[in-house]
Amino acid sequence: MIQAEGLTKVYQMGESEVRALDGASFTIGKGEMVSIMGPSGSGKSTLMSIIGCLDVPTSGQYSLDGVSVESLGERGLAEVRGRKIGFVFQQFNLLARTSALENVMLPLTYAGYSGREREKRAFAALERVGLGDRTHHAPNELSGGQQQRVAIARAIVNEPTILLADEPTGALDSKTGVEIMDLFQSLHRDSGQTVILVTHDAYVARHTDRIIRISDGRIVSDDINPNPIKAGTAREE
């Protein structure tokens, strides 16, 4: 459950101030699949970093599962990221020379799980994304799509409140992109996982039930998408 009220983020760039976010308010309920859409420079990345607790707003309120994050210190934010947020990035961001299993285990390591528990959960997460047979492969031995699956396994391994994906198909070819979108949809459908996709691509956004559009740091529209595309349907602009 996400509640955002009047989120504002101001960056000081030398003399001038940049208002990356200017009073954004919205609520995202548990189990929703939402996309946040906007062109580059619209403030969607800043919004994503606040939703993901990577940063705190200059003003406004943001609470996650009823816990207000403004009051949390560096340590508290790290803990919220580790326990409640699962990140998926455009460039996968896997650790090189590190097996898929160990990559997936990383959030659990910081959350303080025991070695055996970590391995068990990481295995399960890799099974869930269909990579049960690639657990000991390093990222450079996997295809782009497989690497993104490992990243998704890493994001869901700690059973987060929010699965937060930043242009998750941006570095993939369209066929692999579709497979990844299918995976997000199935996580949402089968496990009731809250999914937030941040993208500039309207086609990707249309895979979700709700689309929030942002421009110049303000939310310009927040609509229910009555007929989300089922992943695999032919692309049409």
């Binding site: 790290a78 990221r81 990035f89 961001n93 650790l95």
Partner: peptide, 16 residues
């Protein structure tokens, strides 16, 4: 730097 960012994103604290 990116690795450090990733580690922080998945819950690593400053001290870790």
């Amino acid at each position: 730097t990116k690795e450090i960012g990733l580690r922080k994103a998945v819950g690593a604290t400053k001290n870790q």
